[in-house]
C-alpha cells in the first residue's frame, strides 16, 4: 500500500524545484471508480494526488503529448523537467522511449511507485454498475477492501486484478529518482490469460476467434492513441500515399490494422494494457501483444523497456539468430 502522504510530500518537493515544470500524477475522477490524470503546477495542487489500485492509466504517454505552441517573439522554450508518478510498467515505457531517443532521461523526474497490480476498470464497474462514488480502496493480503457509502466490500484480488498484471515482470519501477515506500516482492509469473488455449487451437480455429474480434473493430485507433509507445509523428495508418490501410471499415482492413499495430509494438510493448482497456469494443489486444512478447523473449531473449542502453530489438541482430524457417 502506498502511503498517500508520502506521495503528496514527495510531489510537493519535486514540483517546488526550480527546474521542474509540472508533475503528472493521478487524482480521483469525477464519478464512480474513475481516476483522472492530474497535472500539478503548484504545491497546493499536489494535495489532490493519490495512488490506489485503480490508478491503472499509464502516464508515460504524457511527456510526449505535450502541446507545443509556436513561440512568441523573444520567448524562450520552456526546457524545464517534467515530473511523473510512475509504476513499474510506466517506467518500462519511459525506458523504452528513452532507448528509442524519444525522450531524454535528464528531462524527467521520476517518482517511482512499487505496484502490486492494478484493478481493471471494466471488471470493477461490472461488479458495481451503479455506484457513483467510493471512499477508499485498499489492498490487503490478497483482498481489495473497497469502502462505498460506509460499507466495506472485501473482494478477492484475482477477481478484479487486470489480466496483464499476472505476467508483469516489473512490479517495481525500473528507473526512478525517488521511490515511494518499499519495493514489493515480485510474484510468480503466470502466462497471460487465454494464450495457452489459443496456442493449442489449430490455425483455422484461431482465425475464427480473431475474425470475430476484428470484425467488430470500429477503427477508432484509440488503442494507438492510448499506447505510450505509439508516438510516431505520423502513423502509417494515416498515410495517404502510400495508403497502407484503407479507411473503409471491413474485416480485411481491420485485420491489416490489427496486425500492424501489434507488429509495430514487437519488442517495444511493455505490457501496460492500455490498448486493451481503452478499446471500446473489447478486442483482447493484450493477447496479441503478450504472444509477441513471449516470442521475442523465447527467440531473442529480449524484454522491452528494461534497459535504456540496450539497442532496439529490430535495430540489431545476432549472427546466430534462429533461421530454421529460411529455405
Amino acid at each position: 500500500m502506498v502511503d498517500q502522504q508520502l506521495l503528496i510530500d514527495e510531489v510537493k518537493k519535486v514540483v517546488s524545484r526550480d527546474d521542474v515544470k509540472y508533475v503528472i500524477g493521478y487524482k480521483k475522477g469525477t464519478t464512480g471508480f474513475t481516476i483522472s490524470p492530474a497535472f500539478a503546477y503548484s504545491t497546493e495542487y499536489a494535495d489532490k494526488f493519490i495512488f490506489n489500485p485503480l490508478c491503472k492509466k499509464n502516464l508515460a504517454a504524457y511527456p510526449l503529448l505535450e502541446d507545443k505552441l509556436p513561440l512568441k517573439r523573444e520567448e524562450k522554450e520552456d526546457k524545464r523537467k517534467i515530473g511523473i508518478v510512475a509504476k513499474g510498467c510506466d517506467t518500462r515505457a519511459l525506458v523504452q522511449i528513452i532507448q528509442e531517443k524519444g525522450l531524454n532521461r535528464e528531462d524527467l523526474v521520476i517518482i517511482g511507485i512499487p505496484c502490486s497490480g492494478v484493478i481493471d476498470y471494466k471488471k470493477i464497474t461490472a461488479m458495481f454498475p451503479n455506484e457513483t462514488a467510493y471512499s477508499t480502496i485498499e489492498e490487503e493480503q490478497g483482498f481489495y477492501k473497497i469502502t462505498i457509502n460506509g460499507k466495506v466490500h472485501e473482494i478477492a484480488k484475482e477477481e478484479l486484478l487486470a489480466d496483464h498484471c499476472t505476467s508483469c515482470i516489473a512490479p517495481n519501477p525500473v528507473i526512478y529518482d525517488v521511490l515511494i515506500g518499499e519495493e514489493v516482492e515480485p510474484w510468480d509469473l503466470e502466462e497471460h490469460k487465454n494464450l495457452d488455449v489459443l496456442e493449442e487451437k489449430d490455425v483455422g480455429e484461431r482465425w475464427e476467434y480473431w475474425k470475430e474480434h476484428f470484425d467488430r473493430c470500429i477503427r477508432c485507433y484509440a488503442c494507438r492513441e492510448a499506447c505510450p509507445l505509439c508516438y510516431c509523428k505520423e502513423c502509417m495508418a494515416d498515410l495517404l500515399n502510400p495508403q497502407w490501410i484503407r479507411r473503409s471499415v471491413n474485416l480485411s482492413e481491420n485485420t491489416a490494422w490489427n496486425i500492424m499495430r501489434a507488429y509495430h509494438l514487437a519488442g517495444r510493448c511493455v505490457g501496460c494494457g492500455e490498448c486493451e482497456s481503452v478499446c471500446p469494443v473489447n478486442i483482447p489486444l493484450m493477447e496479441l501483444n503478450k504472444e509477441i512478447e513471449k516470442d521475442v523473449k523465447n527467440i531473442f531473449e529480449y524484454s522491452a523497456g528494461m534497459d535504456s542502453e540496450e539497442k532496439p530489438l529490430f535495430g540489431t541482430f545476432r549472427p546466430d539468430d534462429p533461421e530454421e524457417f529460411i529455405m
Binding site: 490455425v203 480455429e205 509477441i292 541482430f317 549472427p319 533461421e323
Partner: peptide, 19 residues
C-alpha cells in the same frame, strides 16, 4: 539479418492470428 528477425516475428504473429 535484420529482415530475418522481422520475419521470424511476423510469421509467428500471422500464425497466432490464424493465417
Amino acid at each position: 539479418l535484420l529482415a530475418r528477425r522481422r520475419m521470424a516475428i511476423l510469421k509467428n504473429l500471422l500464425e497466432f492470428i490464424g493465417i
